[in-house]
Design a protein around this nucleic acid. Sequence first.
DNA 1: TATTATCGCCCACAGACGCC
DNA 2: GGCGTCTGTGGGCGATAATA
Length: 748
Amino acid sequence: MAAKRQGKIATLIIQGKERFKLDEVKELAKRLNLTVDKVVSWFREESRPRLVDVLTGNRRKLRLNPSEESRSKARFHNIIDTSKEDSRITEVRQLSRKRHLTTDERDGIIRLFDIEHPHRQINSETDEKEELQGKNEENLKPAISKKTIKRRGAPREVKMWIPYIRGVKICCEEDIEKIIKKEFPGVQDRDDYIGILRNGKDHYKLLRAIKNYGHIKQREVEAMAAGLGIGNTKAAAWVFYGVVPAVYRWLDKAISKSEGVRIANQLRAEIDGIKTWQDVEERLDEMYPNGEYQKNKTFKTRKHHATKFLEFLKEIGKGGTVNGIASRIGLRPAAVRRFLGGNIPSAIQDVVSSSEGSRIHRTFHRVNIVLPKVRERDIESIHQLREIIGRDFPGFRDRENFPSLVRDAEIHYELFLEYRDKRFIPQGVPTELHKRTGLSFDKIKGWLCDGQSPIIYRLLREALSCKEAEKKLDKLLTKLNGVTSMSVLEYRLRNVYVEYEIHHLPRYKKHQERARKFFLFLKGLRGGGLLSDVARRAHLKPDEIRSWFRPDSIPNLVRMAASIPAEPPEDGKKWLPLISTNKRTFKEFIQVPTKITSAEDVLYVMKQLTTLETPKMKEYERKFDMMSKIVGLMYFLGALVSDGYFVESSHVSTYVGLSASKAYNWSRDFGRGFCYALGKIGISSKRGRDSIFEDEEGNLFTQMKWASISTPLLLWVRRTLLGLEASAPKTWNPIQADWILDAPEDWR
DNA sequence: TATTATCGCCCACAGACGCC
DNA sequence: GGCGTCTGTGGGCGATAATA
């Protein structure tokens, strides 16, 4: 095994050729005013700022936004070496100009300065304007938003957790802060405390607003969340995916004030009343007159640890997470865990050596060994553990490190049986075990004395069991409607009228790629395990399937294909959805010809359309007399060609509008007739707001407007019925509709 | 608006180093 | 050689910005 040395050359590669020493990365992080963690994560292949893609040749669009993170990312350009001319460098320069970034290319490095980025100011200005406009509009028409909310989206199951902290139910949003103040006051010192507390409070507010709903529309949730000042993604995660704010997770694992005080008292009892470093020095002076002890080479380090330990005793009394306490006193979490496990720094041990407690400490370790449960079940033997794995987590056995995982568990279990009833073990025992088992000293000591457990238990906690995976898979399959491979997906897409539009979606290739990976993921999911197990079976990277592993999300293309009927359409026909929701799913299919060769073809489609039955339609019938579907269609086409227009609302759907001057008496009836005719062929429409125009002579006149809902059916009307190109501009191209000429007389 | 990409933090463990 | 401490690795998760 290669020796790992401090300061070794990190095999962190960028551009596939340059290597950086870890020290250099740190230096870089310091210079860029970023955390080392972040920069290191960028250097790893799977996590890198998007701008690096530009450098490595994966052309993705460079963009900057006003957030702090992105500005940091932009500064990452500092690492570009300009000594070699390269098209990528040119690209960065061009982009920097385009984005109004100041560049500085001294020392062979491109530096980008965007802290006072104009983009940011522009954005904040427009935001303000929009907000003002929004307010004005709200004053004028308060009902609009509510109606919109109720009309769209389907209700979804509420899966929101009622929060508890240590078994205490949260009953109002102040409870969280109260409990923290009382039991975890140390948590208040965290930098992110205000943020995590606000998240907790927001979560409770939303819970209160939503607790009486079993199902609710996402739009409603988001409207509520917006009212409470909560972001939409976060709200959706809480309400529909059962995500709980981090504050609960942390408090669950944190040490409470009462626990902390108890631990502190126990430890204090063993250090013989020492409270400050002064106390230690006084005793040292007694033991080693003339300050001899200070000559000891390690005195400084020993003093440091002793001081930190005494600080720890104070801090533990305030409660908090291990990491939180560690950062508060400026130590590594591992050090805090050792303190918690009963290790007392040597400087203090020395001066209390006469007391019994410390004598025990000098020659014995305190035992603290625990056996974790697997799925709420106590482990009774390693054989049983193997059985559970074989039955519920068979995929685990394919892990490369499986033998060592189980061996760790075996040894840990033996240790548990042997030492669980002992309070102390003599010094040297961990070392002896380390030699006997070949496991590292730290691992043995962690298990025996610090209550740590082999990693396999954590993995089993987090893994999907076979049954859970099967359930997840079944749930997915019911949504997929048979679309489980690329060939089925392509077949479904071939059968749908909007095939062309789908194939020309922006970034279609990427959609296709994600769909391909999704099907691999489905195969990998069978058998369960951890994300990495599923990824391994699917021959994909964990990050590529992560979003499908947790929530029930489905790639766009697959979702579209799944909503298309499985049965093939008749010869020469295609499936046409009457509704396209959010560009992702289709509903209410009919079959349509792709080419009109005779009036029969038009009738074929008309027969499948259902005339609207609404009070408005009844009203129109009384006013305009009855009208057949086909006459409705012809009337609609006539009005459309004379005063109407198509508006593309999404890639796979379009709507029609009609405008007419208010100056003419017949205009209102013209519009009503338009709506009536549309209603005849099943498309609802309504009058919109009037617009006011000024002609060349300065006269004002008002124009009335009507618009239909958006539907792929109108795409068919445009392309197949009227023979207009998909990208028809405002002015009409010649209509290619010979069928009209051959249509029966009574249609016109 | 749903999905995807990214980041910060947590946890357990391994290896190196230097003092006792 | 035993032990404490520090640094580094890698897997995991929730939160949220970006995107289409």
